[in-house]
Design a protein around this nucleic acid. Structure first.
Ligand SMILES: [Mn+2]
Ligand SMILES: [Mn+2]
Ligand SMILES: [Zn+2]
Ligand SMILES: [Zn+2]
Lengths: 136, 136
DNA sequence: ACGTGTCATGAGAACCATTCTCAGTTGAAC
DNA sequence: GTTCAACTGAGAATGGTTCTCATGACACGT
């Protein structure tokens, strides 16, 4: 019944660097983007380690993960740890965190109505943010 | 302004076979599952052709595509061509088509409120169907 | 400060769904 | 029947992600 099931175990330069770059960005970013960001900062971290660290953070609920339309996973440290959804800019990753009490209720009820158990829902909104719309 | 932008062009044994197997199943199925189903029927079709045909059907709005949690694409010929969502059994693919007028309005409005254009939404519900719950 | 055991790292290989290549095949129009 | 663009399929290529395993380095006890 723990919120954070797997403790991160041992702190390393690499894990600190990944945590820091996540703290510095507000947009959803792919593992490869984060890897490149780290390299360009001088805090070079192996790609495998970036993936491992992101996965651990995701398991612990520290970062949210979503799938871009091309299937790539995108990661972001959100402001709140509570369940929420996202409105994400397709071209720059800019993100707005969304609350949907209505949708939550709707999703749960629809599942129950049809006799399904262990209902989960995927709700993500994609669009083009105002800034990206400018630079046609 | 055409509903079906790219006409399927030329009819072949392979395309007919893919269409038929899609018509016979009510569950979301992966390309590889469909490929194997075709092989087991004797209507063998190359895997590349299965993928190409599914993509063409998806482009024409004849089949719906969604991504399983592991990233695999799943295909299904739905009863209606109009926009709708799905409640899908994680273990067998059994599907209920869902209408959500409320959710539609909500999604559109959230996007607009934050100044995003070209809003699209992904809304999928996953669960365990009554039948699959039995066979623990 | 050291020694020690355990966990973490990273380069590269492996994985795997999907797409691409291209030589051979075939639908369908005339 | 001829013709040719469209289609097919075996296998190679792609690309994000995971795995392998030899090497490196946290953290704890001394
Ligand atoms: Mn929700
Ligand atoms: Mn909708
Ligand atoms: Zn943007
Ligand atoms: Zn089921």
């Amino acid at each position: 019944m723990s919120e954070t099931p797997a403790a991160p175990a041992r702190m390393t330069r690499q894990r600190a660097a990944v945590a820091e770059v996540l703290g510095d960005t507000d947009e959803f970013r792919s593992a490869q983007q984060l890897h490149e960001l780290l390299r360009s900062r001088g805090d070079s971290v192996g790609l495998a380690t970036v993936y491992r660290t992101l996965q651990a953070l995701a398991d612990g609920g520290e970062v949210d993960v979503l799938r871009a339309e091309d299937g790539e996973s995108l990661y972001r440290r959100c402001a709140r740890r509570e369940h929420h959804h996202h409105l994400v800019c397709r071209s720059c990753g800019r993100t707005v965190e969304i609350d949907g009490p209505t949708v939550e209720a709707w999703a749960t009820q629809v599942g129950a109505t049809h006799g399904f158990d262990d209902i989960e829902h995927t709700i993500e909104l994609w669009g083009t943010c105002a800034t990206c719309r400018e630079r046609v």
